[in-house]
Design a binder for these strands. Structure first.
Lengths: 134, 134
DNA sequence: ATGTATGCAAAAATTTTGCACACTG
DNA sequence: CAGTGTGCAAAATTTTTGCATACAT
């Protein structure tokens, strides 16, 4: 599974249960998903448990909510998934992961300029993909 | 009120009704708000109308949904509010608007690199503000 | 005048909660 | 074994829908 995940639970005296492992690894494999899809994808886990688990995961900063292509989704935070951002096609919904160090650095600098210490950030670019421009 | 707003409605053969004007100007004055607060702030407008109006506004790209400080909110799009991004304190929720041309340009370039034509983007930086670092 | 938008009331969908039992450590 | 986490069922909340009336053009 994932050691950082296990360790984080242990550190907070939370048990490593089946629902928690399933949610974590499903998000790990399938990336950002609306809650409804998580629920549908894990029929062996009760709806209420999905909500409760996501709440716990949010508190531990294991997951975060984002809006991608107009939809609210849940995704693993950078700590558990390689850091990246989304480039989403407004027409077909196609999504590409992007990454760019200069932007990251500049954001951190900008934050400092305002007295903030940056912890995380999230970027989403919307546009038309190559196909949909035709 | 706002001419671009009026013109956009007219262009789409939608009427300039009181609820639409109120929602628009409330968002204009108070910035990003959760739907529940919009509903509470405009008691003279029916819940259903708020939802229907927001749907219309989303289609016309007058508003968009964002997640700021963990909460889903509705805000005016760049077209109707000066382009900016959010810098939010994870401790006290304090929010500062930021803006940075080099980042904007680089995002556009990055998109092009992937065959996309960028239309809009959204950035949120989370961190600790000056006060909360103490 | 005509067609659209609204309010109201009801329905559907989503999210939260209480409690008894099961599982983790 | 002790304490936390889960499933199930119910409640609360949020969002959507139908329909008759009111409003904008």
């Amino acid at each position: 599974m994932n050691d950082a995940f296990k360790a984080l639970l242990k550190k907070n005296r939370l048990s490593l249960t089946l629902p928690r492992r399933e949610l974590f690894s499903h998000l790990r494999s399938y990336g950002p998903l609306p809650v409804a899809e998580l629920i549908a994808a894990l029929p062996q886990v009760d709806r209420a448990t999905v909500y409760r688990t996501l709440e716990t995961f949010r508190e531990l900063a294991i997951v975060q909510d984002i809006i991608t292509g107009g939809q609210k989704m849940v995704e693993l935070t950078d700590r558990f998934s390689p850091h990246h951002h989304h480039l989403v096609c407004t027409n077909c919904g196609k999504s590409v992961d992007i990454e760019d160090a200069p932007i990251e650095n500049r954001l951190t600098a900008l934050a400092r300029l305002h007295g903030f210490t940056a912890q995380t950030h999230q970027i989403e670019v919307s546009g038309l993909c190559a196909n949909c421009q035709a």
